[in-house]
Design a protein around this nucleic acid. Structure first.
Lengths: 220, 220
DNA sequence: AGTAAAATCAGATTTTCCCTGATGTAAACA
DNA sequence: TGTTTACATCAGGGAAAATCTGATTTTACT
């Protein structure tokens, strides 16, 4: 018989908190060590009780679950933290991942899912529900989609040479250095630059840099 | 007894292809309908045989698994496709997700994982191994990390005046104009600018613009 | 062969870069 | 209270870059 998993439950809605506690009691190998209703309390209890895992609501009065996570993870990196949320919002998930959570599940998840989540997280892995994974992957997808535009670059009416110069200028390389790299004189570089500004309707190098970033010609 | 899952196996290495087929034959409820060695063949077979699922290598001579996926998914959106790869590369995963794959697993995965993947995908869900999920989440995390800085702007050690100048410079306004706006001389503007470059460790205005964008001092 | 676009370079003026140095002023400190 | 420190202000001056105008050569296309 292996050691039970001690859990700290954090939610500012008593009914919800007790309800979840009741559900969890049905699962073998788990014991609710304590529960509280604020992030501040959670930080204190996490420190004194050293629970294996913390189940925490994300939206609470005062300190949010995310802020609390950051504090707790800083002091007790080994304590697993799963955030509970009424809704799957991009910002929450993102902030959660950033603050170091081990799992994130919506409150409408089944007990089975919760059990799986606890099990997974205690194994040292992360657990996210389908919906969240989908959200992150979709975001990844979109990021790629927009990011990939740097491959088949938009036709901005620039010639090949001008594009080369544009890129180097935007990188922050001096005209002389660009000339050296392209084996042309500074004057030629300057002329290309002028043409670029003309064609793109920009008025100086600063705007050119911004254009280059906006159009993914360079990365920041 | 439910219907068997028909699988098309695509890999240009015969040994690998036959090996995987042999492995899969051990799993109940699965039948290798056909196998081929190129993406082009795969497209044809997908069309004529209408397999439930396609297991395809990502790196093949000629058409890649990713390109083939795009074609197949266009004609047969219901056909599930799992890509097999020798390595987990960001570009591959990204391109794969973009082209509509249902799963992506490395070739060093166990038979259990492959079985789980097939099962998951046939349920209509996507399957990615831990390593891939981690990669995507980390990417997501990083994206957030750099993006979130816009909320609580970093203290860059600049004085109030320097911050004002930084903003105007990054907007693309000339030193003289900045001087006029702030009722100070061009020389003073230049001095502020120098101090900014020093403090931020930048070497010219171009880098300053990039810094300003990165730190959301200006928008593009 | 002829034309248009592209790539090259130069002259000249303004602007910026970058260094040194300097002054007034207000806050912090001993 | 005197001193230090940080901030904001300004200037000189040489080097580099920006900006504008113009011009020549090269390439591409019909």
């Amino acid at each position: 018989m292996k050691k039970e998993i001690s859990i700290l439950l954090v939610d500012d809605h008593t009914l919800v908190r007790d309800g979840i506690a009741s559900l969890l009691s049905k699962i073998d190998g788990i014991s609710i060590q304590a529960s509280c209703s604020t992030g501040e309390e959670a930080i204190g209890l996490a420190h004194t009780l050293q629970p294996d895992l913390i189940l925490m609501d994300i939206m609470m009065n005062g300190m949010t679950g995310i802020e609390a996570t950051r504090w707790i993870k800083e002091q007790n990196p080994d304590t697993k933290i799963i955030l509970l949320s009424t809704e799957v919002k991009r910002e929450f998930v993102a902030a959660g991942i950033k603050s170091g959570i081990d799992g994130y599940i919506p409150k409408d998840a089944s007990l089975e899912i919760l059990a799986t989540a606890i099990e997974t997280v205690m194994r040292g892995e992360r657990f996210f529900t389908e919906a969240i994974t989908k959200l992150v992957f979709e975001d990844f997808y979109l990021q790629e989609k927009t990011g990939k535009k740097r491959i088949h670059k938009v036709n901005d009416g620039l010639t090949k040479r001008e594009s080369e110069v544009l890129e180097l200028v935007a990188e922050g390389i001096s005209n002389r250095e660009i000339g050296d790299r392209l084996f042309i004189s500074v004057k030629t570089v300057e002329t290309h630059k002028m043409h670029i500004l003309d064609k793109l309707g920009l008025k100086n190098t600063t705007e050119l840099v911004k254009y280059a970033i906006k159009n993914n010609i360079i990365s920041i």
